[in-house]
Design a protein around this nucleic acid. Structure first.
Length: 271
DNA sequence: ACGAAGCCCTGCAAGC
DNA sequence: TGCTTGCAGGGCTTCG
């Protein structure tokens, strides 16, 4: 479900309901995720106050005085604020009940997500320590991409989706950004010029920025914490359009697989 | 050290 | 209608 825009959409939706709230109780209903939810988590959370909710890549960080609740939505995860008497449904893994009468509910059918507790500096945690820059900051630019790609043979798309290179660029937005920049997804990362990387850095920012502004991309079931779908789907130019004509040149879009993920591109517009 | 592949899981749509 | 197959928005881990 979530790429960076969807995670950011969730974060923004949660923020006003969660910040400053005291946690009355927490309940782990199904601990099996990518890693088990720690058995001690409810004890850590109980009585704590959520000071802030931030995002690093696709991770959500709920900061408490005693530590940080680290959450990843994986492929199918969803986190929402609901009234505390809201009946549980399938795949509701965890509830964090707030003094306000609402609760934070984490649901994840495919269980690729994670809910962890980190004491001390969360950015020193193994999962966050080696992450690349945020795509919407100035640190992420053409020069950075160009420099870092030197002598790399990986395909441009695989390079763009590597969280050590840049965080938050998932399959949809990698396809879209490469199309907008006119870069063929299969081209070796080390064989792309600086000006073309400048274009690519720009289109990554554009695509993600537009998607956030539109509340993310709802393909099947993504809903923001307000229950509304994202509207970026209607802006997609290549993702999910294999076999259909390119909006720019009319040539039929090609689909291939890279690293077990579907790639769609225009053989005419992308070189 | 790097790059490719495997794997974790459920749900759904398409095809037979 | 019902079965089987393949694919899905991610990313850590293992293998070569």
């Amino acid at each position: 479900m979530p790429e960076l825009p969807e995670v950011e959409t969730s974060r923004r939706g949660l923020e006003p309901h969660i910040t400053g709230q005291k946690i009355s109780t927490a309940l782990v209903r199904e601990s099996r995720l990518r890693w088990p939810i720690p058995a001690e988590l409810p004890a850590y959370l109980q009585g704590g106050i959520v000071r802030s909710i931030t995002r690093r890549g696709k991770y959500l960080l709920f900061k408490l005085d005693e530590g940080t609740l680290l959450m990843h939505l994986g492929m199918s995860g969803n986190v929402r604020v609901v009234p505390k008497d809201c009946p549980a449904t399938k795949h509701d893994h965890m509830d964090v009940v707030l003094a306000s009468g609402n609760m934070l509910r984490f649901n994840d059918p495919r269980r690729f997500g994670a809910v962890l507790w980190v004491q001390g500096d969360p950015f020193q945690h193994a999962l966050l320590k080696h992450l690349g820059p945020e795509p919407l900051t100035d640190e992420f630019c053409g020069e950075y991409l160009h420099q870092r790609a030197r002598s790399k043979k990986v395909a441009a798309k695989t390079y763009l989706m590597d969280s050590k290179v840049v965080v938050g660029v998932g399959n949809i937005y990698a396809n879209e950004a490469l199309f907008r920049a006119g870069v063929r997804p299969t081209r070796s990362a080390g064989r792309i010029s600086l000006p073309r990387y400048e274009a690519l850095a720009q289109t990554v920012k554009e695509v993600l920025g537009e998607a956030i502004a539109q509340g993310g991309t709802t393909l099947k079931d993504f809903l923001g914490s307000d229950g509304k779908p994202g509207y970026f789907k209607q802006s997609l130019q290549v993702y999910g359009r294999a076999g259909e004509p390119c909006f720019v040149c009319g040539k039929v879009l090609t689909e291939i697989r890279q690293a077990q993920r579907s790639t769609v591109f225009c053989g005419q517009c992308q070189k």
